[in-house]
Write a protein that binds this DNA or RNA. Structure first.
Length: 563
RNA sequence: CGGGGUGUAGCGCAGCCCGGUUAGCGCGCUUCGUUCGGGACGAAGAGGUCGGGAGUUCGAAUCUCCCCACCCCGACCA
């Protein structure tokens, strides 16, 4: 493709609205443009990358027996009411004003609709059906460019099996396919166990990429590979045992002391001897939660432990429930369920609130003073805590979710009545799985991982073009001729070339080439041309070398292999 | 939805607090000439409902009110 005839609007300056690196670079390199918050157009260069990613996905999905569909984005609302998800999605679901239609945020319903109409016998399964299509979700807060949009491209796949064992097989196939896909894309990713959330089901794994732009938080152990979403991550901590002697309970006047930091400062004590109180409301009843020092409550873990319907108490409720405000709440005299994090199990000589403003209590012994206390792992895992599976420690960092695979089971086949007959003529619900990849996120994550201060650094797999051909001084006929010849020759060899044939200053073109980030740059300049040579630059390493024009194609092919 | 911020030429910004010529600057764009291996130089140009509406005023980019859009933090999120 000739640059002079292409729509590649590069930007020298950083657009005002972009903050994360991938977003900035996608705008600057002319890959995308924003139309509205969370709604992006892919421009020709960007769409070439979308097609490359899509093709890799197709190849790997087809390799596990997947069959590609193209489902409607516009869905009758009633089909979403069958599964109760019109309500479950709530405001996230886009509704059409003049018809009872919705814009599909995912496609379990439509796929199950087709399955129940066609898949009637055990002989019809297993099936893996997929598509690459636009999804619509009314995100309350779109951000980070294409990473979180209201409209986005997703590869979604669905498996239909006759048994749970069959589901395990389909799930494993997807797990392997996903690893191949992300490997081929050149991404540095990891896989975490995750909570199934509103999708329902029995098992799920997330494919994640470490990134400051991430909206999830993951805990990862480099040495053994343990990885988990922080919502479910466990950790091994050094337990502090009981002191040999339990002191008596005593009250301390602590004016204006609210936080743990203030308390440790005021009393000159370690935060490890502080039992921080938090009140949650579970099914209308207050529950007192204890955390050691400044540990934070992991509400996902708490919800799992107590059951659903858990929320933090409002400030007004605190006074009514405990007789004190936040900062002065404690176990003594509290009526209701008490759950403590494991770190405080059976501890004594602890400090906590007195349920009286401006007072704390020392000498608390959980075994002696707090009846019916329950213990559970309720902490949000922090960097530096021990890995639950090995001797090393965990690193906790923000991450982007690229893909998610779920064992759905019969959630949708039950609610939508998708059944089949087995060999004995007995009726069973189809066992399903669903599997998603955010196509644009693959691109954004790649750029997050592979860029420098000059621009994007594509690999061969995702690059919009293999080679960026730069003719310096396009007013010289011999340079134009040489470029044209190389351009045609490379094209003939099936090498994709972006030919910068613009009449612009050398530095201008070099900077655009670095910004756009094709794996190889070929520079045709006057001096080297006289010796029948040109310069080839490897974008990733910055390495430059001279190549004779006679064996250029061969050299290019050789160099492209590992990029 | 809560908190904070921004909106002035295609892009990046100044001007606003303290109202007063024809609303500036850099980049980009057009034309001509020179230049040509790391975002060239000179000359001449084009391009604006100052986010929208209402108000205050002799006079509003500037002050007041309402609305809209976008960004950041939080809440939410398969």
């Amino acid at each position: 493709m000739r640059f002079s005839k292409s729509f590649i609007p590069t930007l020298k300056e950083i657009p005002n609205d972009a903050v994360v690196q991938s977003h900035i670079l996608m705008l600057r390199a002319g890959l995308v443009r924003m139309v509205s918050a969370g709604i992006y157009s892919f421009l020709p260069l960007g769409y070439r990358v979308v097609r490359k990613v899509s093709e890799i996905i197709r190849e790997e999905m087809n390799a596990i027996g997947g069959q590609e569909f193209h489902l409607p984005a516009l869905n009758p609302k009633e089909i979403w009411e069958e599964t109760n998800r019109a309500e479950a999605f709530g405001d996230t679901l886009f509704h059409i004003k003049n018809r009872d239609y919705v814009l599909a945020p995912t496609h379990e319903e439509i796929m199950t609709f087709h399955a129940r109409n066609v898949v009637k016998s055990y002989k019809d399964m297993p099936q893996i059906w997929y598509q690459i299509q636009t999804k619509f979700r009314n995100e309350p807060r779109p951000r980070s460019g294409v990473i979180r949009g209201r409209q986005f491209l997703m590869k979604d796949a669905y498996s239909f099996d006759i048994s749970w064992e069959g589901l395990d097989v389909s799930y494993e196939l997807h797990d392997k396919a996903y690893r191949k896909i992300f490997d081929r894309c050149g991404l540095n990713y990891f896989v975490v166990g995750a909570s199934s959330g509103a999708m329902g089901g029995t098992g799920s794994e997330e494919f994640m990429v470490k990134s400051p732009a991430g909206e999830d938080t993951a805990a990862y152990c480099e040495s053994c590979g343990y990885a988990a979403n922080v919502e479910v991550a466990a950790s091994r901590v050094n337990m502090i045992g009981r002191d040999s002697v339990s002191k008596e309970i005593y009250e301390i006047h602590t004016p204006n002391v609210k936080s743990i930091d203030e308390l440790t400062e005021f009393l000159k004590i370690e935060e490890t001897v502080c039992a921080k109180s938090r009140i949650y409301i579970h099914n209308g009843q207050p529950v007192l939660i204890f955390m050691q020092g400044n540990d934070e409550v992991n509400e996902s873990k708490l919800e799992k432990y107590l059951g659903s319907n858990v929320r933090p108490a409002h400030p007004e409720e605190l006074l009514e429930i405990t007789g004190a405000d936040a900062g002065s709440i404690g176990p003594i005299g509290f009526k209701g369920r008490i759950v403590s994090d494991l770190k405080l199990k059976d501890r004594n000589n602890l400090f906590s609130g007195a349920n009286k403003n401006d007072y704390h209590i020392g000498g608390i012994d959980f075994k002696r003073d707090v009846k019916n206390i329950e213990y559970a792992d309720l902490r949000i895992v922090q960097s530096g805590e021990g890995c639950p599976n090995c001797d090393n420690s965990l690193e906790v960092f923000p991450a982007i979710e690229l893909g998610h695979i779920f064992k759905l089971g019969t959630k949708y086949s039950d609610s939508m009545d998708a059944k089949f007959l087995d060999e004995k003529g007995e009726e069973h619900p189809i066992i399903m799985g669903s599997y998603g990849i955010g196509v644009e996120r693959v691109i954004a994550c790649f750029i997050e991982q592979r860029h420098d201060d000059k621009g994007i650094i594509w690999n061969k797999a995702l690059a919009p073009f293999d080679v960026h051909l730069i003719g310096l001084n396009m007013k010289k006929a011999e340079i134009v001729d040489a470029c044209e010849k190389i351009y045609n020759e490379l094209n003939k060899q099936g090498i994709e070339v972006l030919f910068d044939d613009r009449d612009a200053a050398a530095g201008f073109k070099f900077n655009d080439a670095d910004l756009l980030g094709m794996p190889l740059q070929i520079v045709i300049g006057e001096k080297k041309l006289k010796e029948n040579m040109c310069e080839v630059k490897v974008r990733r390493t910055g390495e430059r070398f001279d190549v004779g024009l006679n064996n250029l194609e061969q050299k290019v092919n050789e160099r492209l292999v590992n990029l």
